[in-house]
């Protein structure tokens, strides 16, 4: 796969209203009932994304990052607090908020171009018009030669690229990404990050990006929210004042590394909490005695 950048600014692009796309989450809480009583998955989270801003949420697994994204997409309602898009509460799913999932979510029975057309079809666009728009977008993403392929024949990175193009085709105000590159190999991941940042640079739409990869969050974002282990809450908010446009060489810069180090220590605390606390070295010493010659405590 080659790196494809969306370079030509004069090409037609999806309608994007720059003033729109503000996300406000106020005192968000999600509690569900279990056999052992109620459990708070998320509690008291407030965050905002300004129109055109790229914001990431990182945190340990199970901290409710995806829960908030699903609430924004309209798939679930918080048990407390409010989820607002441009000042109005989210009532249900809609094409004004594009969503990218970690699992590949292309429709296997549609070709690439049909997948991209889907949202436009739902909008009621005429067949020839939506085909024209989908083709234009696929051309911009460098995917023209695959437009008549079925998703099953594509690589993981290619599928996610098509998924992003599909979500952008309807001209959403907001893009929600739920660990979109989590299933990809390291190399493809880097390429996808570059593609996404280039795309965003052009479109300037609001992005809320959920990940547990610190490098990814720093490389892509204007701001990063760090969440605590369950019940999920905001632990810290970190601004990323790195210059744009960004290229991957950036990750070697001292500014990047400083940000990364700071976030790393914040996350580490929470990950350890999520695992049930620091590993007790003394306890392991006793354990190691049982393993002839293997000093586990030292290894850890």
């Amino acid at each position: 796969m080659t790196v494809v950048s969306l370079k030509r600014a004069d090409e037609p692009r999806p309608a994007v209203q720059n003033r729109l796309g503000k996300i406000e989450i106020e005192d968000f809480g999600l509690r569900y009932e279990t056999a052992n009583g109620p459990v708070d998955a998320v509690s008291g989270v407030s965050l905002t994304v300004e129109p055109g801003e790229f914001v990431s949420i990182i945190g340990p697994s199970g901290c409710g990052k995806s829960t908030m994204l699903n609430a924004l997409a309209g798939f679930l309602k918080p048990t407390s607090g409010a989820v607002l898009v441009d000042g109005r509460p989210v009532e249900g799913p809609g094409a004004d908020r594009g969503m990218i999932f970690q699992q590949y979510s292309l429709f296997p029975w549609m070709t690439v171009v049909q997948n991209v057309e889907f949202g436009l079809k739902m909008k009621g666009l005429h067949r020839s018009e939506r085909r024209r728009q989908a083709r234009t977008l696929l051309g911009l993403a460098g995917l023209s030669q695959f437009e008549n392929h079925y998703p099953d024949g594509l690589s993981g990175g290619m599928k996610q690229r098509v998924g992003i193009v599909r979500a952008l085709a309807t001209g959403p105000r907001i893009l929600l990404l739920d660990e979109p590159f989590g299933a990809l190999d390291a190399q493809t991941r880097l390429i996808m990050q570059q593609i996404l940042t280039n795309m965003w640079q052009r479109l300037k739409i609001s992005v809320l990006f959920v990940t547990h990869d610190i490098d990814e969050a720093v490389f892509l974002s204007d701001r990063v929210y760090v969440m605590t282990a369950r019940p999920g809450a905001i632990k810290a908010e970190v601004a990323v004042p790195l210059p744009r446009p960004r290229e991957h060489a950036l990750i070697m810069s001292s500014e990047f590394l400083a940000l990364r180090r700071g976030l790393m220590s914040l996350i580490r605390e929470e990950s350890l909490k999520a695992m049930g606390g620091e590993i007790n070295a003394d306890a392991l010493k006793g354990l190691a005695a049982n393993f002839d010659g293997h000093d586990i405590a030292k290894a850890l």
Binding site: A73, G74, F75, G92, P93, G94, A95, R97, G98, M99, F101, Q103, S105, L106, F107, F118, G119, M122, K123, R166, A167, T170
Partner: peptide, 18 residues
């Protein structure tokens, strides 16, 4: 039916019938 496909369709503006 993979629920993620249903969600994808809904977030692309598909109605219940669609």
């Amino acid at each position: 039916v993979d629920p993620v496909l249903v969600r994808a369709a809904r977030s692309l503006g598909a109605s219940e019938a669609a």
